[in-house]
Computed example of a mutant assay.
Amino acid sequence: MQITSNFDSGNIRVLDASQADNIQLEIVKDNQSDFYQWFHFKLNNTDRCEHTLHLMNAGTSAYTEGWTDYQAVASYDREHWFRVPTEFDGEKLSITLTPEYDSVYFAYFAPYSYERHQDLLHQAQLDIDCQLQVLGQTLDGRDVSVLKVGEEGPNKKVIWVTARQHPGESMAEWFMEGFIDRLLDEDDGVARSLLDSSVFYLIPNMNPDGSVRGHLRTNAVGTNLNREWAEPSMARSPEVFLVREKMLATGVDMFLDIHGDEALPFNFVAGCEGIPGYDAKHQALEEKFKAILLAVTPEFQDDKGYDKDEPGQANLTVGANWVGNNFKCLSYTVEMPFKDNDLLPDRSVGWSDTRSSLFGRDFLTAIYHVVDDLR
């Protein structure tokens, strides 16, 4: 029996793998950080008996509430990820599976690989409406890439969508894959209409270094990018610095920042109620956008989510707050679950890569219905 995480986004440390019914593992912390929760590893050369894998340090991870009612995902082919029996006793997370094949992968959520990320970017650039731009490099030397879809114009809206500031939230890039696929579909009337009225700047992965390193929340040097927007630097957060400079050059009429939430088993959005200058127009835009999402998809709800900031108390180091305040625009953080959507549970796959992608497609309809009101 062998256990390895020596691959893209891999994360695990083996403590004891001598007994199939008591495999002891640890999740590795993000580099130069105390954050950890993401895991991704492979179990090889297994017998066809029940295996129990204990993540021994789960009880002191970044978001322990995320383990309640959580089920890990597994895959034999790295394409189809299914949920496996998982229990949390307050200290360790225990995963149980009787393997059907010689090798099986386990992960916190369906991974989105760096190779697939490159495929997404370079297949998109083949579309006549799409241009692949490189803003600069990360600390590990990877590209900070943006897809520009559509053309600027004097009356065109500028819409930005970013994902995976927190690299372990891989559902965010699955969301982007669906969003981009629909936006580039020349037979889709919503997409065609939006490109007549708007230009899109899309960043499927804001944190490629953290993604490849198997981090939960930070970049190569342990920086939480979604707390860097007030004063980013090329030394600690070049990803945010470069994107923010591009935003200042293009302007922003609407911004969506795509994330995953460890604890809440729902899809929801977080608005900008606490930013300085939040007014009735901003509130009306937010309410209309949420109302359209509620009408478009039963996967979305607005009853459960984060507490709203008090007026003037928003944290302006957070991306959606900084953008909403600086550009006086509709700006939302979009959250999806690591667990399942309790409104529409699926016992086999839970909230999944495919459902995340379909959810991304739904957002184009909501944007279509508010785009004329953005300014």
Rank of each mutant, 00 (worst) to 15 (best):
L135R: 06
T365K: 09
N326D: 10
V240F: 01
N224W: 03
R375V: 13
L293T: 05
V161Y: 09
F338Q: 10
V349I: 09
V149D: 09
A74S: 13
F338C: 09
F268R: 00
G214F: 07
D185V: 00
V161E: 02
H80V: 09
R361Y: 10
E239P: 01
T68G: 07
L93K: 06
D188F: 08
D309N: 09
G271N: 01
S94C: 04
A320I: 10
D309A: 11
Y201P: 04
Q32N: 14
D279I: 11
A280G: 05
N224T: 03
A20M: 08
D102Q: 15
E115W: 07
Q133E: 15
D307H: 10
T68L: 13
N224F: 06
P111N: 04
N155D: 15
A172H: 07
F39I: 00
L225A: 03
L15A: 10
T4M: 12
W229S: 07
S9K: 08
Q19V: 15
T250G: 04
K42S: 14
D181W: 10
S61W: 00
F7V: 00
V349D: 02
Y101T: 11
P208Y: 03
H54F: 11
F7D: 04
Y201M: 11
V144T: 04
I23L: 13
N44E: 15
R244K: 15
Q125W: 14
C49D: 08
N326H: 15
V190Y: 03
A191W: 03
A107K: 07
P85Y: 06
